[in-house]
Amino acid sequence: MSTLAAGLPARTTRQVRLATREPILLRAGVAIVAIGFLMLFLIVPLVAIFVEALSSGLGVYLAALREPDARSAIRLTLLTAAIAVPLNMVFGVAAAWAVTRFDFRGKGILITLIDMPFAVSPVISGLIYVLLFGLHGWLGPWLKAQDIQIIFAVPGIVLATIFVTFPFVARELIPLMQSQGAEEEESALVLGASGWQTFLRVTLPNIKWALLYGVILCNARAMGEFGAVSVVSGHIRGLTNTVPLHVEILYNEYNFAAAFAVASILTLLALLTLVARSLVEWKSRRAVPKHATLPEGEP
């Protein structure tokens, strides 16, 4: 049994070395699996969209995008985002401000309510508006009497989009503003700045990257939303079809090249969003040392 005694220390060192080596192998394996998944579920479909879109040639691709219904869909999507995103930006800043700078009863409920659009299915988000503004809904008969059309028209699409994209900005700002605290703003107020000056000179510079990040995500969702918009759209061609709805229509008409061509616009938007996001993250990381006074080496 002397071999055992002699072999023991050696084995221990080997085990220690193995303990550091194994995770590398494991990490390599995990990385391969992760990259494989990424390729299979993200890159390949992404490439497929552009391949399919251009499969019948650039001429067909351009024609699909120039077609009046496609242009009207793009116009409507841009219009919807142009209304929904600024409104949600204002709301998000106001909500984050209220939640992080003031104490009031029902704050918990407000935070929960802000999150609600994330929690409910988009179909429900659309049906809410049908129940409210539909001909047999709560406000429907009155609206009919005033000759105001909300659902199955642009206002309904904008409303549904606002509802669905509601939480993005506030959700980005609340954690940041909570961690920043109110000291800088309090100092500004003590030094004689007005509320508006404090907001413009102190709060806004501190939150601008998070705000931009929230706006980018909000915009991506506003342009890409399908479910809620589908319920309130009425699918009138050239009038109430947004880009995602138009893609579905083209696909259902066996018009695959055109469907993918229009889909590629949305994909491009997603890619642009990703680039903008990375840019904002990079900028904000560079911007951190100017504002924060965290000691070096702290996580």
Binding site: F133, G137, Q149, I236
Partner: peptide, 20 residues
């Protein structure tokens, strides 16, 4: 003439709910 297409029951429902 503008067109709207979808499942028949869903389309009827939309007209009932105020699709003009």
């Amino acid at each position: 003439v503008r067109q709207s297409h979808g499942g028949a029951a869903k389309q009827a429902r939309a007209v009932i709910d105020g699709l003009e």
